[in-house]
Design a protein around this nucleic acid. Sequence first.
DNA 1: ATTGATGCAAAGCTTTTGCATTATA
DNA 2: TATAATGCAAAAGCTTTGCATCAAT
Lengths: 151, 151
Amino acid sequence: MVDSKLKNCGYRATAGRKAVLDVLTNTEGHLSAEDIYLKVHLTYPSIGLASVYRTLEILVNVGTVYKFDFKDRKARYELAEGPGGKRHHHHLICTACSQVIDYKDFSPEELGLLKRVEEGLYKRYDFKITNHFIQFYGICAECNNRKEDIR
Amino acid sequence: MVDSKLKNCGYRATAGRKAVLDVLTNTEGHLSAEDIYLKVHLTYPSIGLASVYRTLEILVNVGTVYKFDFKDRKARYELAEGPGGKRHHHHLICTACSQVIDYKDFSPEELGLLKRVEEGLYKRYDFKITNHFIQFYGICAECNNRKEDIR
DNA sequence: ATTGATGCAAAGCTTTTGCATTATA
DNA sequence: TATAATGCAAAAGCTTTGCATCAAT
């Protein structure tokens, strides 16, 4: 099914591309290009970093992979699942210690209202929404406690 | 008030820092470090790009400025206003043409949703939320029409 | 007078590109 | 067999850093 998606878009389904996609499929979290390169390298040692980048670019364009950055210089990649997917999550980012917490225990209310917001956007902007990327910034529990200690 | 914020955090309120903040205050949109450098340069020609970067880092740490990337390699900077601020907006990003639409005509429903979600997160994660960054991905009106033409 | 801030240029890192070679369709 | 894909190394681009100088406190 990966093969067909690539082929449908006019790309060849090569071993390197499959290996990259395997890593993305079997790993949770936010992987940098180098993370992916190192992991692919284990099963497919001849791969080059440039091919990883080239493959990721294709997968992003095709919509299979999602690319984003939060903090450091590196871009991060994740298998792109729509809001209904098992991996779909939002981020809590602590502005004090920079830790990133993924959460996916969405309340039914949260899900329902998001859906309605997206419908509203579709009506107002004629913009057909397929996915969203939501980050909340604030102070995590540990940093908050630390601050109280100091006071 | 900028001065005091910097000083409170142990930084000196220098002309260069004020100039950078002026540009951020008087410009709408997502500015790259170089955009800012060029604009500051007009009123404060002796500034160096490195100082712009150093200032931006401070302002981000202090919480005055918000840093993010969407697409190209460059980081973007904006005056950080909380969800209630006049500039606060969300993004609609077209995955076909990469255009970014800012919108701030939030529906009351949308505002209520966010507030409740943030309260829920606070309870579940003991995470004190101060801001959020929300992007919706999809296909913009123009790209959607173009696609229909092709069919 | 101290010590942090600055500018310049050089260094650092991630990502992209050129090109000869390899492998897919 | 034609042509896309790859690997390697070099190049590019944004950001950071070292250091001598300057300026805010």
